[in-house]
Amino acid sequence: MDVAVVGAGGVIGRQVAIALVAEGLLGPEDRLQLVGRRDGASGSLLHGLAHDLRDAWAEAAPELDLAFAPEEVLADVVVLCAGATITGRPGEARSRAALAAANLPVAEAVARAVAANGHGGELLLVVTNPVEPLVAACCRHLDRRRVLGMGAFLDTMRFRHEVAAELGVRRQLVSGLVLGEHGFGMVPCWSTVAVHGFVGDDGRSRLAGLRRGGGAAGELLPRIEAALAAEGAAAAYRLVEGLDAGLRTMLRPWVTQLCGARTPCGTAETILRLLRTVLGGGQVVAAAQVLLAGEFLGLHGVTGAPVVFSAAGIDRIVPVALDADEEARVRAGVFTA
């Protein structure tokens, strides 16, 4: 299997590339293509990264190929990590529109190149933000069943972890979805949450108790960012810890992003979790940003929806019943180009 990481010189892309090799997902019979820009820092860095990967994993490493233009992208699975991000530096543009303006060109270029040069069966996983406009842009060139935004998948894994941590159980025992927009408009769907063993009145009561609310993320954000600026990351995380699991899902990664750590480990591990199943021939049942044509809630546009997918792409949308508020918020967050 050939996997291309576009933006392999960046923080997230590099972690994804390293994890693919370190965790043995790609071995000597596979190929990992590291994609960067010849005129950027990656023009040099990717050569070094390739040598470092071979140095570390030698005989276990896949064939390593370097590419420096979208036209050179050649793989069965393309992971798009390239582009600008929000770092928390003073004065930087933080709007979704500004991020989209910065990152749409690379997404379009990659999708156009894969459409022109590919074999037609490629899977494109969009990690770069903002996920929804980029998925929409890629679907202008590629079969929409083969383009998935990773935002809702990441959010869902984080939500399940937050619920599991609060109950003191393993994440694997928790089911539940985060749908809608990848951003502060995300919708942790409590109506979909179930935890193995938490059945009956007592179990349902404990699960209901997790749902404490506490305000909208947008309202809490200024206080958390003020704490981060004035007292540091530990103080900001303490504020986040006091919120319910749904809000922690939105705000903990934001603190991680702004404190400078970014989220390479969490993002890479989640991608790997998905690829481990897909590359092994299995199916994944989760949430992802997809271009809908009425299959979920009658929506047309890009949003996080419950899907079943494999290496062949999206197999189907899973019909999930949401409560009225969740449904309204998912509807409100649909991206239409």
């Binding site: 050939d2 064939e63 190929d65 050649l74 040069n117 590919g118 074999h119 037609g120």
Partner: peptide
């Protein structure tokens, strides 16, 4: 043919 051309490009990138 699309797959054939892909294979050709893929082979060219093999070391």
């Amino acid at each position: 043919e699309p797959l054939c051309r892909w294979l050709e490009r893929r082979l060219r990138r093999s070391p």
